[in-house]
Design a binder for these strands. Structure first.
Lengths: 351, 351
DNA sequence: TTGTAAGCGTTATCAG
DNA sequence: CTGATAACGCTTACAA
């Protein structure tokens, strides 16, 4: 019990300065890689820093510099739970933030404009990642007006030069429909997101349904869809209703892994097979798609990458305001797995 | 363009004080619910605060008070990826932290003792949630010695009076085995965690295998297990090896949702049915268990609750050091779903 | 009950 | 190239 005494007070920049025989300003310069420091002093001071195990106090640093190095993910939980999707966004963003020395925190309570502005004005955050973007979202314009940094995961109807990263949902659905048509299927049903999401003008809900209708038109198909909750059970019911109305249905498109599970159940319970009788294509991340049986042919949703990129874009905007704003619309990728197959694959009809 | 001018500077406590005609200390007292303030001034100042939309600057507050209100989740990514499990812990903890006005951040790089102590000494964090706890983990003793606050998700072999929350893994496996025995099954295989996790003495890896061996002994069963990676593919291989060695196997226990998927695949590919021929019980959260077909009979792993509780315990320790330390060992719950069934359920043997 | 003033650990400005 | 010194916004004795 000689080396370590209990409860040592944190080592400060003063300690380092005194120990190295220089002023605090010199230490500060070294800490922040400023020029105008002789190599010799730099080395000497650095040695002291290492020996003492000194780490700067972030709060003091932030206070002095007028920066909090805090960004936040704004996910108003209204028409949504915090699912795998949002989780992945969050983790990706947290990783990117960490790498650049920023902290990420999460706000899930819905906020009015005063609340949102306060977040910035109070110095709590330097920037925000906006989620649950509505087609006519009021937040981007407000933040822009007040010159506050933000990036959207998602996008509005009119995006001006707002920073965003989003998936091309229309394109994704088009890809899914094209794939199914190629498989010889022309009776393609769709289980859309719940109606309250569409009336709230949430981007994905609107664009997925639009994309479906458009793709049907372009392929000369008769659209047939239901709007349903996001749970497997809700989609199970919706899929049944679809299969009742149109018994010739030979393909279904769903918008999440859980939804696909519900659809698969509805199909198999009536003695029809996936993918032979009814093929299923869904929006899903690789992780979820491979967990499900049969593994899902899916429009890949690279959620963690999106969260990561969003944070990266935001921090870049913070540190290099002069650079031009990035707008990233990810091209959808179709990953073919077991839940889709050509229509005439009905050989083994005996069992 | 009259109301809102651009780039207003943040409103400070001085602004409030001036506007209300009192001193900053009075405002500070009101902000922190201290006594010794007349009802009248309190009201008057509060009105000003509301009108101005003033929010205290957390950095300044922390600096002055010598507190960072920052806690972190320490998850050294060595023998693990950041999976659904850890994700859930994180989100739960973030939620609890947010509710109490703390920030949670995540460290995934492994740390040596100097690094760990620096986190506290530099004032970066007030407390930590430790994950990936080894049976002989060195971190709790070190932190205790330096009087630093922490709580473990997991536990060591010797936990003294360290704060922790963990699942009773031995009990969970015992429950799984008991359930399968009750279903009339006595050839119960086990796909354990990978050997490197066991040799690293990670709690769950050690306790799950121990629990399995013990449960076999108590039920007079012959243990038969493989250690395998956590991916579906690795478990698929392991399960096949198990089924080759012991064709009479009629039950399998796995340790994650993905593992169960691999096991199910191995069983069904040899023309045997789940649950009739081979029942499967797995460790899994409700969300994952219901995503899989057949839905998993599972030892419920309440991950988000554990993360939440861990953060709550930590913050309590921070704010009420006098209270006695909590040690929470969660009793496992078995949720019976479709992947397990009585052995003699082999009626419809014709197809 | 209220006010004054000295920090908290940095950064940044401005002289040397 | 280096060093004083004044912020940064808040808390907290200590006075009044």
């Amino acid at each position: 019990m000689n080396e370590s005494s209990f409860e040592r007070k944190p080592i400060t920049i003063d300690d380092v300065a005194r120990e190295a025989g220089v002023s605090v300003s010199t230490v500060s310069r070294i800490l922040n890689d400023k020029p105008d420091v002789s190599r010799m002093t730099r080395q000497r001071v650095q040695a002291v820093i290492d020996r003492l195990g000194y780490v700067p106090n972030l709060q003091a640093k932030g206070l002095a510099a007028g920066k909090s190095r805090m960004i936040s993910l704004l996910f108003p939980m209204e028409h949504a739970q915090f699912t795998q999707l949002e989780l992945d966004f969050f983790v990706g963003a947290a990783e990117a933030a960490g790498k650049r020395g920023y902290f990420l925190n999460l706000y899930t309570e819905p906020m009015d404009d005063a609340g949102l502005l306060n977040l910035y004005r109070s110095g709590q955050i330097e920037g925000a990642i906006l989620m649950q973007i509505r087609m006519d979202d009021w937040r981007p314009a407000l933040l822009r007006q007040h010159r506050h940094a933000f990036v959207m995961i998602g996008r509005c109807a009119d995006n001006q030069d707002f920073r965003f990263i989003d998936l091309d949902f229309e394109g994704g659905i088009a890809l899914a429909v094209a794939h199914l048509v190629e498989m010889g299927r022309r009776y393609i049903g769709f289980v859309a997101r719940p109606p309250e999401m569409r009336t709230a003008k949430l981007g994905p809900a609107v664009r997925l349904l639009d994309g479906y209708l458009k793709a049907c038109e372009q392929n000369g198909l008769t659209p047939l869809y239901r709007e349903a909750g996001m749970s497997a059970d809700a989609v199970y019911t919706a899929a049944n209703s679809l299969l009742d109305e149109q018994p010739t249905l030979n393909a279904l498109i769903t918008v999440s892994g859980a939804a696909a599970v519900g659809a698969i159940r509805a199909v198999t319970e009536r003695g029809r097979r996936v993918p032979e009788d009814v093929s299923i294509v869904s929006l899903a991340s690789n992780r979820i798609a491979t967990l499900i049986t049969p593994s899902l042919t899916a429009i890949n949703f690279p959620t963690d990458k999106m969260g990561y990129e969003a944070a990266r874009m935001l921090i870049n905007a913070l540190e290099h305001p002069e650079r031009k704003t990035e707008q990233v619309l990810l091209a959808p990728k179709l990953v073919i797995r077991e839940s889709s197959a050509p229509l005439r694959g009905q050989h083994e009809s005996a069992v």
